[in-house]
């Protein structure tokens, strides 16, 4: 199989994740789009690990999965705080620092 078919699939999912981060208003959905982007990166790393016959890419993917789990935990706690303070999970309500 070609290396590029995996890389282009991962580029597509990454671009969709970028769209989600930019276009979504709900905080939970923004975090889900971030997960899409992290998964695209993982697919890239695994594809290169197979291509170079080198195990390090898979280890990196494992680390990214662990860091992503930590990120979701803290991110959802932050969104919970935003919801508790503003009565809405919408990120464009967070504008107290706006001059």
């Amino acid at each position: 199989m070609e290396l590029n078919q995996f890389l282009i699939l991962s580029a597509f999912i990454f671009a969709v994740g970028v769209y989600g981060v930019l276009a979504r208003r709900n905080g939970v959905l923004v975090l889900m789009s971030v997960e899409l982007m992290l998964n695209a990166v993982n697919l890239n790393l695994i594809a290169f690990s197979a291509f170079n016959q080198n195990i390090n890419g898979q280890i990196f993917a494992l680390f990214i999965i662990a860091v992503a789990a930590a990120e979701v935990g803290v991110g959802l706690a932050i969104i919970l705080l935003i919801y508790r303070n503003l009565r809405s999970p919408d990120l464009d309500q967070v504008e107290q620092l706006k001059g």
Partner: peptide
């Protein structure tokens, strides 16, 4: 791909 578009 279709499900990713569905997510966003």
């Amino acid at each position: 791909g279709a499900a990713a578009i569905g997510v966003v």
